[in-house]
Amino acid sequence: MKIKSREDLQALRDKYRDEVIMRLVSDNFETRTEINVGIGETGLKTGARDTLKTFFDEVNLAKLENVSVIAVDCIDRSNSPVVEIKIPGKEPVIHNKVDSAKAKALVAALKTEVQ
């Protein structure tokens, strides 16, 4: 495909941005928002991987460029899946027993907060 205009290029940029954005923002870890999902042994049993996937898909869908979804070791075994949301300059907030539905709601809430 030949690029014939600035708009053509912009379209390609938007199309492929998703693939590199993770690498770009990960280096700005002081300014990015982190969603840390505990997926250790307990997390794996309590469906944390589904939670993780939902977070990832939702964040992408919402095009929240400066938000990273990170899988970490279990945060609190008795309330798994546990998710910690860290917005720069704010106290990290812990959310217990986060299933996919709750994950969706959290991303929706985040959308207004980080944009």
Binding site: Y16, R17, E19
Partner: peptide
């Protein structure tokens, strides 16, 4: 090249 597009590659030339 698509990675380079993703980081605003060739935009400076375009402009």
């Amino acid at each position: 090249i698509t990675d380079y597009f993703g980081v605003d590659g060739y935009k400076a030339l375009a402009v």
